[in-house]
């Protein structure tokens, strides 16, 4: 798994590629948390376009970032959630907390 993080004002865009599991997600969480503190990030967009597998570690990633942005009065949103990821998204019930958009552009416009 690899990823790109782009800070855009108080917004952080995280584009993830590869397979998300408990082992691979740890370094990503650490980098996102560090950037959030350093740049006083309020909103996080997680772009799943390049993700072809995700287990519940991905749900943990989303819940943790949701808690952070909620505490800042901001939003965590997800974009480009592919077919293979939708079942675990639905199972987690995260849709009530974290809006999902078809494209990154739509996600950006929502914030």
């Amino acid at each position: 798994m690899d990823w790109n993080c782009n800070v855009e004002g108080n917004r952080l865009l995280v584009s993830i590629r590869g397979e998300i599991d408990h082992h691979t997600v740890q370094a990503l969480k650490a980098e996102v948390d560090q950037l959030c503190q350093r740049h006083r990030i309020k909103h996080i967009i997680l772009d799943f376009e390049g993700v072809d597998f995700m287990d519940s570690a991905g749900i943990g990633l989303l819940i943790g970032r949701y808690r952070y942005t909620a505490a800042q009065g901001g939003l965590t949103v997800a974009a480009c959630v592919g077919k293979s990821l939708r079942r675990i998204f639905a199972l987690s019930g995260l849709g009530r907390l974290i809006p999902v958009y078809t494209t990154v552009e739509e996600a950006k416009q929502s914030i």
Binding site: D21, H23, F53, R87, I88
Partner: peptide, 30 residues
Amino acid sequence: GPNVAFARTAVVAFLLPLDPTVLELNDIRT
């Protein structure tokens, strides 16, 4: 840690000759 990916990939490879659906494979590897 890296053996989590190895294990799920091995199970997918084991099942491929049965021509499972993408959804079934994804459920099992998850």
